Amino acid sequence: MCQNNDKDLTIICRCEDITIDEVRAYIEKGITDLEQLKRLLRVGMGPCQGRTCTPLIVNEIAKATGQQVKDIPLTVSRQPTTAIKLGVLAGGTDYE
């Protein structure tokens, strides 16, 4: 853990470079909804789609609110908005 001027600079979301201190600051302001934190801090929106940071953030919310981890709703996963041909996904070069 990196400590600098009483701030915890531990990176909790590696994809978006968000520290635990930044997450805790929002939680202290009363933002304890994971979906809101996602929209405000972009946690869970990087290449890993929250596989690393979501459990860590949920634990922080649970600790701050006294809730159990299982009672904290997770974010909604959304599908791509544009149709993609299977041939393109399979490595084909026909983009028609």
Rank of each mutant, 00 (worst) to 15 (best):
K63N: 15
C15R: 02
I18D: 01
D8W: 09
I61V: 11
T82G: 00
K63I: 07
D21L: 03
L34H: 02
D33I: 10
T81F: 09
T52P: 00
R39F: 02
L37A: 02
I11T: 12
I31M: 11
I18N: 06
R78T: 14
G87Y: 07
C53N: 04
T75A: 13
N5P: 00
I84R: 14
L74T: 14
A25R: 05
K70M: 01
A25T: 04
C15P: 01
I57P: 06
V23C: 08
K29F: 07
A90P: 05
E28H: 09
E28S: 13
A25L: 03
L41H: 02
I12T: 04
D94T: 04
R24G: 00
Y95T: 11
L56N: 00
I12A: 03
G92R: 05
L86F: 09
I84A: 10
V76T: 12
N5Q: 11
C2Y: 08
E60P: 07
G87A: 15
C13W: 01
T19M: 08
R51A: 13
D17H: 14
Q68G: 12
T65W: 13
P73S: 10
V76Y: 08
C53W: 06
D71N: 15
A90R: 14
D6Q: 11
N59Q: 14
M1D: 03
R42L: 09
L9V: 03
Q3W: 01
A25W: 00
C13E: 02
A64D: 10
L37H: 04
Q3S: 01
Q68F: 05
L86Y: 06
I11S: 09
L34W: 04
Q79H: 07
D8Q: 03
I12D: 00
E60Q: 14
I57V: 15
I72T: 08
G92T: 10
D71Y: 04
S77W: 01
L40D: 04
I72Y: 07
K38V: 01
P80F: 05
E16A: 15
G50A: 09
A83H: 12
G46L: 02
Q36P: 00
V88A: 14
T81K: 15
Q79R: 12
P80V: 08
D6K: 10
P73W: 10
Y95N: 11
G30Q: 10
L41P: 04
T93E: 11
K85N: 05
G30N: 06
T82C: 03
Q3F: 01
L9Y: 09
I12F: 02
C13V: 05
D71L: 03
I11C: 10
T65D: 10
R39D: 12
Y95C: 06
L37I: 05
V76Q: 12
L37C: 02
V69M: 02
K7Q: 07
A62Y: 05
L56M: 10
L89D: 04
V76E: 14
C2W: 01
T65Q: 13
V58T: 14
